[in-house]
Design a binder for these strands. Structure first.
Lengths: 268, 268
DNA sequence: AATGCAGTTTCATATAATGGAACTGCGTTG
DNA sequence: CAACGCAGTTCCATTATATGAAACTGCATT
C-alpha cells in the first residue's frame, strides 16, 4: 500500500514488499498497477533493486522475484535476533520430551512472526516456517505476548487485528480479547482452543527480559486428534521452565564481549 | 565495501550489509568508521532503515542490528526461489534413504549459497543454514555448479575465488581448478575430498534447467568417520535421479498458472 | 497497415539527498 | 570544576538526484 514513506529508500522497500507479497514472479505492468508510483519511477527503482540483487529478473519474461541477497541478509538477521539462536537447544529438548510441535515467535507489527519450529516427529525443514506471519488475536503465541505488552503497545496491536472469525470459537473483538488477556495473565499462560484452525490447540508463554519487556513467546501445539487441552495444560510447568531458561540465556547473551568479530570467510 | 552504487538505495543497502556482517549490534560510531559515507548521510540512512524496520535499534545503547522485516522478506524469497520449495520432498527422501546429510545450494556471486539442508539423524533446524555462504572452489557443490557454467560466468566466478588453502588437498589456483572442472564434467559429478575441512567429503551434481542453465546443486556429504568416498560415489546414481527430478519439477513449475494470488492474511 | 500493450528512454523541473560544520550531552581527565 | 574528547544529533545552503509526463520502441494481435 501507499509508497512506504521515507523518500527513495522507503519507496524501494515498498516495491520489495509488493514483490514479496506475490506468489510468483510478477511482470512490470502488474507491479505498476498495484503500486501507486509513476511508471518511470517504479521502473528505475526496480532496475536499481535488480542491480543490487534484491530482485532477480527472469531472463525470458522479465518478471521480477525476490533476490538471493535477501536470503543472505535474513540469515544474518536470524543469527543476530538473539532469541532464535539462543532458544534453539531448549526448543529441541522441549519438542523431544513432549513429542509435540514447538514454536518460537515474536511480535511484529501486530502479527505473530514465527522464528523457529521444532517437530519431534519429522525432520521437516523449519526454514519454510521461519518468517511466516500469523494473526495474534487468535493464537496462543499471540495472546501470550499481547497479555504482557505495555498498555500503549497493546493498544496499537489491538487496533491492528482483523478479528476475522476463523472458527466459532474465535474471539471476535478487541473488547473480548482484552478480557481474555486478563484471564491469560491471571492463569499465567495462554491457551488456544481451535480459534484459528479447527482441530488446532496450543498453550503458550511469553519469553520476557529481566526488565519485563516481551521478547517473544514459545508454544506447544498439537491437534485434537493427537492430544487434548488437558494434556497440554499439564505441560505448562515444563513450558515455564523452557521460557525461563531461554529468557535467562537471552539476557545473559545480550552483549557477548566487545572483542574482534571472528570471521571464517571473506565478505563478498 | 565502498558505497554500493545506485544512489541512495544502493547506499542504504550497503549499510544493511555492513550491519549484517557484524556478529553483534553495532554502534553508530563504529558503523561510521567502516562506512566511507559522511556522518550525516550515514546517520539519516540508518534512521530511515530503522523507521522501515530493516534495522532495529537497541533502546538502551542505540546499537543497530538487522530488523525482522528481513526475516519476513527472506521467507518470501525462499518460497519464490523455485528451487528450494520444489526440491524439498526429494531432499527429504534422499537424506532418509542414505542416512547422510544432503545440501541444496545455488551460486551467488562466486560463492556457494546454501538454500537447504536435510539431515536424516537429528531434526536440527535448517533455517540456521539457509543463507549461509561458503567457498565454491573447494566444495563439491561449488565445483558441480562451476563445471557447467557458461564460459563468461565461469571466468568471472574463477576470479572471485580466494584459493585459500584450507587443507593440503585444497585446489590452490584457478588453473588447477579449471583442470578439476574438466574432470568433473568428464566424470559427471563433483567430488570433494577434505579440501575445505579435514574429514569432510561429499559428492555433488548440478541441477540444470531444460536449456542447460545451472539452477543450483545437490550434494550428499559425510565425514571420513561415518563413511568414505567410495560409498558416496556409489550413491551417485541415486543423486543423479534426485537432481533430474528436481530439475524436471523446477522447469515444470516455472509458471504455475496466471490466476489470482490467494492470500490468507492482510499485508501489513 | 493499424491498434494496443509492455517495457524503456528522455528531459526539464522540483525535490530530496548531501555533507561540512556547528551543537548537545555526557563521561573522563588534568 | 573547568576543559577536553567523543558519540550522537541537527542545521542549512548547495547540488545532485529522483521525478514523472510524455514520447518512443518493439512486439504481438487483428
Amino acid at each position: 500500500m501507499s509508497d512506504g514513506g521515507d523518500g527513495t529508500v522507503g519507496k524501494a522497500l515498498s516495491v520489495l514488499d509488493l514483490v514479496a507479497a506475490q506468489e510468483r514472479p510478477i511482470r512490470f505492468a502488474e507491479l505498476h498497477r498495484m503500486s501507486a508510483l509513476p511508471k518511470a519511477t517504479l521502473y528505475r527503482l526496480a532496475q536499481t533493486l535488480v542491480s543490487q540483487n534484491m530482485l532477480v529478473q527472469d531472463p525470458e519474461t522479465g518478471a521480477y522475484s525476490l533476490g538471493v541477497r535477501l536470503v543472505r541478509l535474513a540469515h544474518a538477521a536470524w543469527r543476530q535476533a538473539s532469541l532464535a539462536p539462543v532458544a534453539r537447544p531448549f526448543l529441541d529438548q522441549l519438542s523431544a520430551e513432549t513429542g509435540l510441535t514447538v514454536f518460537l515467535a515474536q511480535m511484529d507489527y501486530g502479527y505473530v512472526l514465527y522464528l523457529d519450529r521444532r517437530n519431534a516427529r519429522d525432520a521437516a525443514a523449519t526454514f519454510s516456517d521461519a518468517g511466516k506471519v500469523g494473526p495474534a488475536y487468535c493464537t496462543a503465541l499471540g495472546k501470550a505476548m499481547l497479555a504482557y505488552l505495555p498498555e500503549d503497545e497493546l493498544e496499537q496491536a489491538l487496533g491492528q487485528q482483523s478479528y476475522y472469525r476463523f472458527t466459532p470459537t474465535t474471539l471476535g473483538s478487541a473488547a473480548v480479547l482484552r478480557q481474555a488477556l486478563e484471564r491469560t495473565r491471571a492463569r499465567g499462560y495462554a491457551r488456544e482452543r481451535e480459534e484459528h484452525e479447527p482441530g488446532a490447540i496450543a498453550v503458550a508463554m511469553p519469553v520476557r527480559a529481566a526488565d519485563g519487556r516481551v521478547l517473544g513467546a514459545v508454544s506447544i501445539s498439537g491437534t485434537t486428534v493427537q492430544t487434548d487441552i488437558r494434556r497440554l495444560e499439564g505441560l505448562v510447568p515444563r513450558l515455564r521452565q523452557t521460557v525461563d531458561r531461554v529468557s535467562r540465556e537471552a539476557s545473559h547473551w545480550e552483549f557477548p564481549v566487545e572483542g574482534e568479530t571472528e570471521r571464517e570467510g571473506r565478505a563478498v
